[in-house]
């Protein structure tokens, strides 16, 4: 593990590196260097398997973090490459020329996070949501509960009581006009 990390540092001067386990590490790299690094890892360092691509929304820092998870079948090590995208117009270079199946992940990410991958095959096709018009549901500012209640009308007839308020009403109603 350390070897590949040192190489990454030497070749691409990548910092910082976060090592989770002895066989798993994450590095954050610049957006436009990613295809380079991925190609090098795939072709020269035996990181031939792209396990998944996933994203995390960070509205606090106005970024969306993309993670590309690579696996090396010879050393059995995992390497995660992280890229930070601008949250207002997230756009990333498509890497479907490196791994064909990535197009599916990219479709999903476009739908769930609104990340654009120009040139990725079938990007505009529906993935799981058909005809979705709201903000992408995996964005953190999307309130799924509110959306659900608005759209899927839960069965009526539910009513609950707060023990504190209920006891007040029952036991000392005179204090009702408090505060």
């Amino acid at each position: 593990m350390q070897e590949i990390l040192n190489k990454l540092i030497d070749r691409y001067a990548i910092e910082p590196i976060q090592e989770n386990r002895h066989n798993q590490a994450f590095v954050t790299i610049e957006k436009n260097r990613l295809p380079d690094v991925l190609t090098w890892l795939r072709d020269y360092e035996d990181y031939t398997h792209l396990a998944f691509i996933t994203a995390v929304d960070y509205p606090e820092i106005e970024k969306i973090q993309l993670t590309y998870m690579l696996h090396n079948y010879i050393l059995h090590t995992d390497l995660g490459l992280r890229v930070l995208l601008d949250r207002t117009r997230p756009e990333m270079v498509s890497i479907h020329h490196l791994w064909k199946q990535v197009a599916t992940y990219q479709r999903e990410l476009r739908e769930m996070f609104g990340i654009d991958f120009p040139g990725s095959p079938g990007l505009q096709e529906n993935f799981a949501l058909e005809g979705w018009k709201d903000i992408p549901p995996m964005r953190r500012d999307f309130d799924t509960k509110e959306y659900s209640e608005k759209t899927y009308f839960p069965r009526p007839g539910r009513q609950t009581h707060d023990p504190k308020e209920y006891m007040k009403e029952k036991l000392y109603p005179s204090a009702k006009e408090d505060k």
Binding site: A128, L129, T144, S148, Y152, F153, R155
Partner: peptide, 19 residues
């Protein structure tokens, strides 16, 4: 199917089938 179950607040699952 009755009232959403554990998916009651999901953005993509319906809450009641009888609708």
């Amino acid at each position: 199917t009755i009232n959403g179950g554990m998916y009651w607040d999901s953005y993509n699952t319906i809450n009641r089938l009888d609708h």
